[in-house]
Design a protein around this nucleic acid. Structure first.
Lengths: 343, 343
DNA sequence: ATACATTCAGAAAACCTTTTCGGTGGGTTT
DNA sequence: AAACCCACCGAAAAGGTTTTCTGAATGTAT
């Protein structure tokens, strides 16, 4: 390690430094580093060595300024703490990370003006595009329409159907869940779910109804039991259902939390799962599902994939391929011990 | 809404456009917009109106290029899915969000070369600083030493004590938890915790021991029961402890998951919580703690605050105030129904 | 009326990179 | 030997902003 005199700040190296060290012009240095053709092999080598020695990192600001593309995107989330935005965000990060794109993370905390503020900042930084990820499946108001870059909405669609949104197919998911219980031979299926004010709750219930209709069956209790997304509600609802409909043999729960409550109540009531009753949850939140007794079958919304797809669509849009509208991605059932065929 | 002729791309406005529209030079326009002094009030107004009309947003790239400060920082996390990085990340986002700083989020997925890659990209983008947040409290290898910007490590400290790290005081937390149980009048306290390979498990156990020593008491069973961070382990360990030491009257659990298991086992063994036994968990993970029966007291590591402090320290470091070393932030006990004085 | 201070506006440099285009020198063809 | 081509390199412009310094105009004091 050579000490470069006792000079002041060792200012990060610039292309000019590299060029000087290699004894070429900055134009040549640039071409050498970027693999352009018009550089003699030996010259290129000299430049690359110089760059290495100075640990030169090209200034992305200058490049972005020149090319009009920064290679950055903004990721706007409404609630970081929520467990839905994170997987989406991971998927997006994943899709981008492979290439040479960096992600600005902004959490608006559910506040519209804070969001507006963030958007402003991101535009100032000349992001190439924006992904907006919501915390509920209910449609959300679109960003101010004057955004000069492509925008993709993930998880929560935009209220404007002309915008580009990627969502999880909750109706389909409800159907899948009930079909799974039917495949287990269950015929008296109850649906216990969360806050009826959530579109997710309504959609999943609708899907469940559709699957039961198709099988010519009724929902146990005649309708879904909608309450809150908590274990406590799951426990209470399960007790109620069992009391009113002792022949219930399947529970489709709107969340894994609810399912945990249902499982606890069933155990305390002496019902065996999956012997007497099959139970399936929703979200496939592993902390809850794999620690349940028995381990909990659950519907997985494939949120990471959702994030990846959103990122891919954003890429396409940046490259000019417009494809507006809502894209509804399918969910899948993850089978564990809590659901099994009647023996 | 006026249509501006059928022209091509409505290229985002630049300072030149604003200046032209206002009938001034770009220098004056810049000064007007940035609130510099040497501009007549009336001129400033004209410029601001023009900027408004063109919805002008200053190009942060150009500004950054010129000033050598970008107003961006990199947030390097090892595992986004982990529930520890997220609150830290939120706290940091929070501290920055107030000002005019944007955050690049990078998830290295626990892969060192991927991390190196991300660091390279961030330096290319000329971030003003870096926060590295880990997923375990074990010290981690520092980033390559040749980073030309300040770095702060959060949650997981750097192995190099000369680096700047912000951590949660797990030893102190262990002490706090046990002191809380002692304050409830408990005298036969067991400690059930997770994987002994985690420094967090060792530290919390050490803190617990220290508090018991100070009170002149022994740990129930003579030592901590270390296993895994799961409900199942909590259940099993609780059964074992109760069998071997029927007079146990307090459980300090290394995580809320473990505590959930302990609570379940105690209920099934007919022990009343908090009547017969007080239980306290760790992490204060609300989904688990508030859904437990009874609701679970827990130690909160104040991770958001940790993130905020990390961000503040980074700011200070960017402004030249170096303050190296490890900063150990205190935790706090959140009391709920699972721990109460003996009646 | 002259000297001088004050207020405001503009010209130009600087930040760093990419790309186009012109130029140089060597080699090849006729 | 003349004409030409090819491979390689460098000069310069462009991208958008901030800041310094100069310059002009106006107002004030003598």
């Amino acid at each position: 390690m050579t000490t470069q005199g006792g000079s002041a700040t060792p200012r990060t190296a610039t292309l000019t430094d590299v060029a000087r060290l290699a004894g070429v012009s900055i134009a040549t240095a640039s071409k050498a580093i970027n693999g352009r053709a018009q550089v003699k092999a030996e010259t290129r080598l000299r430049v690359l060595e110089a760059a290495e020695r100075l640990s030169f990192a090209p200034n992305a600001l200058a490049r972005g300024l020149l090319k009009g593309r920064t290679g950055t995107v903004g990721l706007l989330t409404s609630d970081l703490e929520g467990r839905f935005s994170i997987p989406v965000l991971m998927g997006a990060e994943d899709a981008f990370g492979a290439g040479r794109v960096s992600v600005f993370l902004c959490d608006a905390r559910g506040d519209a003006i804070r969001e507006q503020h963030h958007v402003q900042a991101l535009l100032s930084r000349r992001v190439d595009g924006l992904i907006v990820v919501g915390s509920r499946t209910d449609p959300r108001p679109p960003l101010s329409s004057e955004i000069p870059v492509p925008v993709v909405y993930a998880y929560a669609p935009s209220e404007n159907p002309a915008d580009h949104s990627i969502t999880a197919d909750n109706v389909g998911a409800g159907r899948l869940a009930v079909e799974h219980l039917l495949a287990c031979g269950r015929r008296n299926i109850a649906h216990v779910s969360g806050d009826p004010g959530y579109k997710a709750a309504q959609d999943r219930a609708a899907g469940a109804r559709a699957a039961l209709d198709a099988a010519g069956l009724e929902m146990a209790g005649g309708q879904a039991y909608l309450g809150s997304w908590s274990e406590g509600w799951g426990r209470g609802a399960a007790r109620m259902v069992v009391e009113q409909h002792p022949d219930v043999d399947g529970f489709f729960c709107g969340s894994d939390q609810i399912a945990r409550g249902v499982l606890d109540a069933l155990r305390e009531l002496g019902r065996d799962v999956p012997g007497d009753v099959s139970v399936i949850g929703f979200d496939n939140w592993e902390v809850l599902s794999t620690n349940a007794r028995p381990q909990l079958s659950s519907v997985d919304m494939n949120l990471e994939r959702l994030g990846r797809v959103a990122a891919q669509r954003l890429f396409a849009a940046i490259d000019g391929t417009v494809r507006p509208g809502i894209e509804d991605l399918p969910c899948r059932v993850v089978t564990r011990a809590s659901s099994a065929p009647i023996n």
